[in-house]
Design a binder for these strands. Structure first.
Lengths: 200, 200
DNA sequence: CAGTTTCACATACGCAGCGTATATTAAACT
DNA sequence: AGTTTAATATACGCTGCGTATGTGAAACTG
């Protein structure tokens, strides 16, 4: 059967997708700096021409890849906190989810290491770092409801996120990640409770 | 006056020092990846020959630079905690000191961003990340004395350090670092108290 | 103190990779 | 059908890393 000629936008979307997928693979295995754009594009049957047309430069592809992975992180976090009890438990569940996520090499390498190093601070990313966004929102509500002590929202969110993600890097790099994970999560819950109001 | 012929080791030490100093400058202004070893060595009147002889490769220089900056961080942290009250206050003072340190571009760019991205997890650095080491020791003592709740030492240290350093990155990148700094430190103290034993 | 060795560093070379300028070809208009 | 547009390919130059080789001065040696 003769396939109808593909429309331009279709193939372009498809090629963008291919390149982003290839980027995820390449960046995670070689790291952003060492990833070759020639190899990457060839691996999906394209050339650097397509890359530079679609993403401007190498950084542009990284940004697109980060945005995609970041979006997936947000989805996973929502799922994790969905069946937690109250708002506070939801925050803890999200934190635990982020710690677990960093066991994923894509998250670790691309979002936590190369992202900040080559794209700058996550809070300025166009994709808005998922962890930060979700945490900030949760913290805002908890403080408003008097469940959390009155700290600066941004600062508290950043501390919680930073703690979770950094602990995650430790877990991932430890000798026995599977046994380190619960320790990290336990400690996280303990520490986060510092933010809880006394009267609760 | 005729200067006595310099001994070999002397000049070598001096050249190593020059290269490390040049590395600090170059890495902080351009970032590790974009720093040119040709420019860097030329800026101190040497060539890449000296670099590769002394440090093996580009990464070797980064490691040396990281070790130096890391050492200075440790010294600053000790000074900061020296005149704090009890052990717990010392831990908090150290944390606050680390948050303040990340306002230093060298610390931020070299130790917090490029270091982990290109040398791997700080806990495996030969220089042993100063923040982690100091925090682990402090936490160990506090738990042994029953001042802190019984969490995993590594995990707790990693969380505290991660929170402090990540908050520091936020402070450094915020619109008004000087006003963000106290907010970050306040929130840090609050959160850290989650680790305090009830009975205290 | 002349001869020899060592080694810290310079010079020279090859190769890989990024970005850009130009070419091509198929889809989209008219 | 002819023309334009634009998505991708091709071709080029430049920069930069790492290595192989050269060199001269300090460090041994008898």
């Amino acid at each position: 059967m003769i396939v109808a000629a593909r429309r331009r936008v279709e193939t372009m979307e498809e090629n963008r997708g291919k390149l982003i997928a290839a980027g995820r693979k390449a960046f995670v295995s070689a790291g952003y700096a060492a990833a070759s754009m020639d190899e990457l594009t060839a691996s999906v049957g394209l050339t650097r021409g397509a890359l530079y047309h679609n993403f401007g430069d190498k950084k542009g592809l990284l940004a697109a890849v980060v945005a995609q992975v970041d979006g997936e992180m947000a989805a996973r976090a929502r799922t994790a906190s969905a069946d937690a009890g109250d708002d506070w438990e939801q925050l803890l569940a999200e934190g635990a989810a982020y710690i677990a996520m960093a066991l994923d090499p894509e998250v670790r390498r691309i979002v936590l290491l190369d992202g900040p190093a080559f794209l700058g601070d996550p809070s300025h990313w166009p994709s808005q770092n998922a962890c930060l966004q979700a945490t900030k929102q949760a913290v805002g509500k908890l403080i408003a409801d008097g469940i959390m002590k009155n700290a600066d929202i941004e600062a508290a969110a950043r501390l919680l996120c930073g703690a979770a993600l950094n602990a995650a890097l430790w877990v991932a790099d430890s000798d026995d990640p599977q046994s380190a994970l619960p320790k990290a999560i336990d400690a996280f819950r303990l520490m986060a409770e510092g933010f809880l109001s006394e009267k609760r």
